[in-house]
Amino acid sequence: MSGYILKKEDFGKFIESLKEEYEIFAPVKKKTYFVFGKVDSAEEIAFEFINTEYSPTNLFFPKKEVLFDYNNTKINNKKEDITRVIFGIRPCDVHALIIMDTLFLEANFEDTYYRKKRENTLLISLKCNSAGENCFCESMGTDKLERGYDLMFCEQGGSYVVDIGSQRGQKLINELFKSTDEECIKELHCNKKLDMQKVNQLEQFAEHEGWKKESEACLSCAACTITCPTCGCFDVVDVPNLNMAAGKRLRVNTSCQLKNFSEVAGGHVFRETRDKRFKHRIYHKLVYFKKQFDTFMCVGCGRCITNCPAGIDMVSIINSLK
C-alpha cells in the first residue's frame, strides 16, 4: 500500500484538524520524564521521549474507574461519548493493547468499559528512533507493528512518513498529506535481550531457589505492575454517599505484589511470602498467560525495570537461571 507523507511544518495544522472531532492525548513532559496527557496544541506534545514513564494503557483501563452509580436499586452506568485520538503511542504499547484485548474482549466475558474506550479511541503510533536502556522489545517481537494502529507515523528528515492501518485512520488523511512511495524503515536494536529459550523453559524453574533469593530485594511497592502496560488486576469497591442509599461502585487497580491481593474472607492469604508474589508476576507474564491465550503478557517495554526502586531486573534474572 502506498503511504503518505506529512511535512513537520504541517503537523500543527494536522493536530488542529483533529481537534474538531477528537480529544487528543499525547506524550507530554512532566518534570524529568514523560506521561500521556490531554493536549490542545502541537506545541504541548513532546517528541524527545524514548517512551513514557507510565503507559497509555491507563487511558483504557484507568487506575480508578466508576463501574456505575446507584440510587437504591436504580443503576446508572451511562457514560459520556468522547472520541479520542492518542498520538505518539509506541509500537510496544500498541502491542500491549492487543494483549489487553485478548483478555478484556474475550468472547462471553467481555469488559464493556474497556471495549467502549477502545472503540472510541484512534491510535496514531509513532515509531521509535532508538531503544532505551531497558527496552527489550526486540526479544519479545514487539518492536515491529503490523496491525492494531490506525495511523503509523515514522520520522524521516523534515517529514513523517505515514502508514495507514485502518479505515478509521484513512479518514484522518486530509489535504495536508501527500502520497508517496517512500518507505520509512527503522531498525531498532535493543541492548537488553531476553533469552527466549530460557523463557520457554521457565516452567522447569518453578521451584528454583533463585525466586526466593531475588525477592529478598523486593519492597512489594507494586511499581512494576502499576506501570506495566499489560497489568489489569483490580479490586471492586463500593463507595456509598453519606445518605447510604446512593453511591458508586468502583474498580481500583491493584497488584499481585501486595500481600492483601490473595487474601480471602476469614483472613487466609494464599500468596503470603514475597517470593511467591514475585514469581507470580513473572510467571503470569511469560508462562500462564501464554498457556491461556497463546501470547506473552509482556511487550518488553522495560517499565518494570526502569521503575523498580530496588533495581530488580526481570530480564537478567531470567537470563541467569540455571
Binding site: 524529568t32 514513564e53 487506575k63 511497592c221 526502586p309
Partner: peptide
C-alpha cells in the same frame, strides 16, 4: 488499607521520590 503509599503515588503518575 495495607497498600504502601507507593500504590496511590504511582496511580498519580509521580516520579518516584525513593528512587
Amino acid at each position: 488499607n495495607t497498600n504502601p503509599v507507593c500504590v496511590e503515588c504511582r496511580f498519580n503518575e509521580n516520579v518516584c521520590q525513593f528512587m
